[in-house]
Design a protein around this nucleic acid. Structure first.
Lengths: 151, 151
DNA sequence: TACCGCTGATTGATGTGTCAATTATTTTGA
DNA sequence: TCAAAATAATTGACACATCAATCAGCGGTA
């Protein structure tokens, strides 16, 4: 009687390879399309979306990081690049002078607004339209199962 | 009568966001685990796998790029880093002196062999074990549908 | 054979992600 | 009160991805 299987079998491994490779290309298609259409990276888009939804279009850096689930250092570097392009700017926080407030700039707001429709269109064309309603539902369930397994 | 929908609806968008975010984390978990367990990145692994399976453990750079479906420039940069770590080395091709032969080094071969079991174990634990057999099958079908849609 | 275009591969610039170390400020507690 | 611990954020170093530009060698053709 065999013990618990430790390694994936041939079929499971094939599904894994297909799945990673395909989801990788999927992301790459969408982000390339976003960049070509709008000049924004997916990181830019995530930051701008969060700021757009924030009251006053401003967030503490740590709150922003928590909201989009990024490491602080990643965010810091990214904000530096976005600030150079004038998409956001930074102010020091009045209540805690070690904190920084990130503010959506007019340039950033208009870039975001110009990006949203083309981006959503790309999501529909590249992702949603590729799947049947059942497959779309299954995709949601698979994502949920994987997340639940990330103890 | 409405024309063809152009944009995803609320539910479709929610599935999209869940799906990308989750597959992103999935990849990140697996690659972090691979790196921690073995010192290899997923790029390293892909290159070493291809060389291990090649006759004589060597491939023309262009053949390697085609095999793992990478841009040439990406591969060139990556091989430079791998060469510095002595995982591979390069020779100029005898028949066409523009060409480069990429050769698996002993260090590279043993790193790859030491990595394969831990890597497959991680794939099982993080991916395969998270899904029911039906979900795994659905994942394969979703990947196939997405790829088919990448005209 | 001498030129010109094509191909194989590398390079440099820039953007991105991660880790470890650092700086500045606030909080805690003896 | 004041030194140590905790917190907010940045920085530097490096790996990685993509794009455009470059370089060397091959091959066809006038």
């Amino acid at each position: 009687m065999p013990g618990p299987r430790k390694l994936p079998d041939r079929d499971e491994l094939a599904v894994w390879r297909d799945f990673v490779e395909t989801t990788d290309r999927l992301r790459s298609r969408i982000t390339t399309r976003l960049h070509d259409d709008t000049g924004l990276s997916s990181g830019d888009y995530a930051v701008l979306l969060a700021l757009s939804e924030a009251p006053g279009n401003r967030l503490r850096s740590s709150a922003l990081a928590a909201h989009i689930d990024w490491e602080r250092s990643r965010l810091s570097h990214h904000l530096g690049r976005m600030e150079r392009r004038d998409l956001i700017h930074r102010e020091s926080s009045p209540d805690d002078s070690r904190g920084a407030e990130i503010i959506l700039s007019p340039t950033g707001a208009s870039a975001f607004h110009a990006a949203t429709v083309p981006h959503l269109r790309a999501v529909r064309e590249i992702f949603v339209d590729a799947l049947t309603p059942e497959q779309l539902k299954a995709a949601g369930e698979i994502a949920a199962a994987l997340r639940a397994h990330f103890r």
